[in-house]
Write a protein that binds this DNA or RNA. Structure first.
Length: 217
DNA sequence: ACATTAATTGTGT
DNA sequence: ACACAATTAATGT
């Protein structure tokens, strides 16, 4: 909401100082817009034309995609210092977004116009490295997800999902419902409840209302 | 403080 | 998968 270039510059220095060269930071603060989103706000939805791409300052953004049958499936999360790498391919080919980005927690980010990315690619080495790195990271993560789908049964998928949440949210106490887990893993609430109960009996976690404590060590 | 509703979780078929 | 019970949180009076 704030468009003050000095403020943007300060934020960029704080979070991207080691990654971006000075001239690039100047460029971004000139063309970027600072925006915040509340939990569950959409940053971008499927089928919408993308005019801006986000650089995440802080918070957590969930990237998901729709199945044939209207089912939403979780792809990965963006956190501080990330950008939506896939959107670059999308916008170079002028296409509309194939993904949905929603705020999982309160999010602050800098939105910059898509047509700047090509220009910066040519001008700034640190930008090129940044883009390729984020592509690499996303690819690794997606391969992890595919592995999970192909090789693990639902109980280990759930446990993997939970420990991953612990990492991402920085807390062993997850405020999450069985229904939400079912949505993310494209399963039904009842089977999640049953498997969570089993995991609790195995001592891997403790169930509470709207809350799951994951034992880790 | 109490009653009513909605949301979440547990269980049996 | 479905139906329903049990428990808890949220809201109104």
């Amino acid at each position: 909401m704030k468009k003050n270039p000095a403020f943007l510059k300060e934020q960029l220095h704080l979070h991207f100082n080691t990654i971006f060269e000075k001239r690039l930071i100047n460029e971004i603060s000139k063309h970027g817009v600072y925006k915040t989103y509340e939990k569950n706000d959409l940053l971008i939805d499927i089928g919408v034309e993308m005019t801006h791409i986000p650089l995440i300052i802080n918070g957590l953004v969930k990237i998901s995609r729709e199945n044939n049958n209207e089912h939403e499936i979780l792809l990965y999360y963006l956190e501080e210092g990330d950008t939506c790498a896939i959107s670059f391919a999308n916008c170079i080919h002028q296409s509309k977004s194939m993904f949905r980005a929603s705020a999982e927690e309160k999010v602050a980010c800098i939105m910059f116009p898509v047509d700047k990315t090509e220009e910066w690619m040519i001008k700034f080495k640190t930008w090129r490295v940044f883009i390729i790195d984020s592509y690499h990271n996303r690819l690794e993560e997606m391969i992890g997800v595919i592995n999970g789908l192909a090789f693990f049964k639902l109980d280990s998928r759930i446990y993997k999902y939970l420990t991953n949440q612990v990492k991402i949210r920085n807390s062993e106490d997850l405020l999450i419902t069985h229904q939400e887990i079912a949505n993310d893993l494209n399963s039904s609430r009842v089977v999640i409840s049953r498997i969570l109960k089993m995991l609790e009996q195995q001592g891997k976690l403790k169930l509470d209302r709207r809350k799951i404590h994951v034992h880790v060590s």
